[in-house]
Write a protein that binds this DNA or RNA. Sequence first.
DNA 1: TATGGTTTGTTTAGTTCTGAATGAAGGGGA
DNA 2: TCCCCTTCATTCAGAACTAAACAAACCATA
Lengths: 406, 406
Amino acid sequence: MALRPTARTDVNRSAILAHLGAHGPASRAQLARALSLSPALMTQLSKDLLTDGLIRELAHQPSQGGRPARMLGLVASAGRAVGVKIADDHVAVVEVGIDGTVLRTASEPFDPAASTMLAELVDRLRRFIAGGSDTPLLGVGVGVPGDVDAQGTGLVNAPSLGWTNAPIGATLRRELGLPVLVENNVNALAVAERLYGLGRRHDDALIVTIGTGVGAAIVLDGGVVRGSRGGAGEIGHLPVATNGPVCTCGNEGCLETFISESALVRIARERGVIAPAAGISALRAAADAGTTAATEIFSEAGHQLGRALAGLVHVLDPEIIIVLGEGTADWSHWSFGFEPAFRAALMPARRGVPVAVETWQDDSWAQGAAALVLATPFDAEGLAGEQGRLVRQRLVEQAAAPGESA
Amino acid sequence: MALRPTARTDVNRSAILAHLGAHGPASRAQLARALSLSPALMTQLSKDLLTDGLIRELAHQPSQGGRPARMLGLVASAGRAVGVKIADDHVAVVEVGIDGTVLRTASEPFDPAASTMLAELVDRLRRFIAGGSDTPLLGVGVGVPGDVDAQGTGLVNAPSLGWTNAPIGATLRRELGLPVLVENNVNALAVAERLYGLGRRHDDALIVTIGTGVGAAIVLDGGVVRGSRGGAGEIGHLPVATNGPVCTCGNEGCLETFISESALVRIARERGVIAPAAGISALRAAADAGTTAATEIFSEAGHQLGRALAGLVHVLDPEIIIVLGEGTADWSHWSFGFEPAFRAALMPARRGVPVAVETWQDDSWAQGAAALVLATPFDAEGLAGEQGRLVRQRLVEQAAAPGESA
DNA sequence: TATGGTTTGTTTAGTTCTGAATGAAGGGGA
DNA sequence: TCCCCTTCATTCAGAACTAAACAAACCATA
């Protein structure tokens, strides 16, 4: 493919801002190296950004053998973003600063199958946004448990929510008058992980979530893989056994039927480890208390996950596997089965692939969605399309004239 | 002629040439759209290429509502490339024109485990190249059954050849004095498929080879995925059964233990379908003759492959699956088991993914390797690195001064 | 304390590329 | 036939970018 020099300055100015936001203050020389731009251009661009009030000069850094670097830092009030996580029973919303820090959170019950669903969603977001600070709001990121045709369009197919071609992006955009980016929730998480988490240092990573279900996002050559219809990363329906429980998808032996939360609960009930009406918390408590039958259930799940991920390491050759999600709270129990199965199933040449478990917070999903907005400056290939351009535009415009914010 | 064309012009000039080679003649406007360049720049670049004699103006095309397009086409004598396939018992070499057509082929026995292996390889290539036409030779592409650190470096790890960090790229480059690109053979095939085959119309594809082993290459967002160490696409060791035959990698239930050529032969012998000393051709003959026990073996292999590929469709969300390799000759037998297993294992939303079986020729592997050289112009991200730059340079220089001294 | 080396940042001159206006060449309807 | 529309291609002013030289600030070492 040829280079896309369209709107280069726009992309480069934003890339500087994003880099400062993601990696903290940096010198002009560091930025030039990181973004593959000439020092000459960095001088020019940083001058513009300084006069626009988007960045400012910080203290000098001690010399590293030559002239000491004058650091550049973001002006924190330059912008903020709103992230939305849509689940099958609630909506979580967060407001994050341009540097990725969470400023405000909210969570409310929500019925995605209701006919008034879209109006309700708009209403909730309007109220949340109204309560925010007065720094420019750059846009809204939405994470959904399903396939999204394109981030900028935001047409969602999510069987678990009962959605078929739900026009989330277009509707929110029209009603809120803001740039809106919609993406699969695991992919959004991967974007956040790449900006702020461990993925920052890895251009090829496999990001796996465990919780109510199991999901994955694929980072290759620094970008999150979407696939032809935005559906890449669906590892829950990898066949891992020739005969096994019947999955919701109609098949036997899907990975999900062994390791999803409901699968663990089902197994625990069958084996009498927990009461017929008890749930995952009972199983977790039993395992934490050292009940062998309970820890075995987690360990077996870890075993299945380990084998499946080893297969994916062979297919994708990532540098690292990063595990996230509500289920990571029980990782100590999973790892008993995971580690031996994973390592044994790997070819010798791949046996060194590290597996990292990131700390998980309640609002991580929504934070990931917000990262969609804050990541747009990196989006040179136009993954976010027109909406990404609008986000960049708002960042530059509103900072230049901070008076009328929507 | 331009005084000092920088990297970007170089890339764009080459992108034009590659597009013409891959997709046939095109108008300036079409090229501008395809390569995301402005029409203004296309005018400039095509003028340069015309005066350099690399392209020429063809006939007008009938109007499509406006001014008719004046088509531009490659000058066929602008260059050629050599492709090398290295297998565990022989080496195949082809010479292809800039438009991808095979001009000449050769195949000789070869022992990759011999200590004189590199010298032998150089010798064979020297002799082959000496017999070629006098159009400029742009470079040599090498396909190997193993992991390659980077196309331009060409450090190969190939257990099946007994190679550990074999410096194929550096050695050939030094000895031949030509740009050399080394890549995993399935990845090279994917590059060719993307340039000349069905993959031309698909930015996200899964390319699967069946034959002595089973392999895959992943095309995402238009590019062939290499993974962190050039090892992506290894699907032979996906775990597909909880207990099964022990694989050469030491595990149980790898896909390869069910569907590789040696696995089929082993099963056929166990079941008495073929004689204990007979091989794959005997099994094939039996199946072609309609022997149920033989067709069943293929059908079972198809079943396993179908389930595994369905899993990968969920993970990668390709637009299409393309099947290649020596084994495609028996596809009619495979498909009995493949189709139902594949379709059934897919989630409803993905059930429409087409599976295409491409015609296979003996020299397809080597042709794929040659495509590495001819594809370098597309290589904006520098996958081929310095060697790619050299290929482009040769293309421009040699065409600018054909025959004369430079 | 000079001297040379290193890293950072700026300036200058010149190239590459885009946007917008314009010309070129044809189709189709009243 | 004339007029408007579409698509293809070129021209030109100016923006974006780079390379290369230079200036600034600091360290190390003799």
